[in-house]
Amino acid sequence: MTAGYSRILAVFAFIAILVTLPLWIRDTFYVNIASQILIWSIAAMGLNLLVGYAGLVSLGHASLFAIGGYAVGIAITSGFDQLTAFVIGLAIILLISAIFGALALRSTGIGFLMITLAIGQILWGVAYRWVSLTNGDNGISIPARPQPFGLDIEGPTPFYYLALAVFILALAFTSRLVLSPLGAAIRGTRDEPRRMTALGYNVWLTRYIAFVMSGFLSGIAGLLFLYYNGFVSPQVLTVQSSSEILLMVLSGGSATIFGPFVGALVIVFMKNVASSFVERWSLVLGLIFVLIIIFIPEGIVPGLARLKTGFGGARRIRAVPAPSGEAS
């Protein structure tokens, strides 16, 4: 039981640090970076539901991240008010996730990865080429951040608290889901899909629900991203962008609650801070990718746990699921 209490204590300490963060770091540059980390954490938490818990590796998640931002941006520029635009955004995220998932789940394993990559490219193509709708390469801008419940979130610190509130909600939702019957079912379909079918589970539908939840969570992060930048462009939908989210999941540790946060922390920090010293972000990204896959395939959080328990009792967790070629 003491282990349970110390865990709860650690979570509270973690949240307390996040809540008081703007008080310690006065520099708005770093407050903004903290907001970015939270936004990408939420996106990675969404992808983690799929990659970590359902065992389905998607390379098209950036398009689900960006789609809501585009929907809201287009709605606002065509004259809708912020609230309506927000609701339209949520609806579009759900709709596209539902279609995307139905197509991608024709397959699992490597096939799933290839289809998500291809569909991600289609959506990138729409954003990049359908200039009359998406403004092409220039992207879509919104004039101002919304004022949810009349709150002003234009400043870095108020916006940080908005991102933090959504982050905590997402964290609560995922940690709840993982302990729930549905969460157990989702992991079951990852490990033993045949057995799950024989036990009466609808494996396809379970995966589909995981996909839509995953897309929805990542899409919400994308809305925050739009509000943060005031701007969304095809750059956000590229394979590289999808790969960054995936790398956050894998580097932090897939199928862990805090892995996506740790991954987002590392990647966003490297991207923002390191890239002001080193110019070559792609190179760094590629190198981290290769190094993580070769040396700590289970990710940072489980990797640290392994160090703590000693190498003797190390159990290798499959960070990336082996493809299961079964038809369901």
Binding site: V57, L59, G109, I110, L113, V239, Q240, S243, L246, L250, R280, W281, S282, L283, L285, G286, L287, I288, F289, V290, I293, I294, P297, V320, P321, A322, P323
Partner: peptide, 30 residues
């Protein structure tokens, strides 16, 4: 050098080729 040490883990191999593509892209740009 890179794919074989990963044994038969197809997913890791795919992700490695992905990482490699970023490295090649940036080196070419350089």
């Amino acid at each position: 050098l890179l794919l074989r040490p990963l044994g038969g883990n197809a997913m890791q191999q795919v992700l490695l080729t992905l990482g490699l593509s970023f490295i090649i892209a940036d080196l070419s740009l350089m």
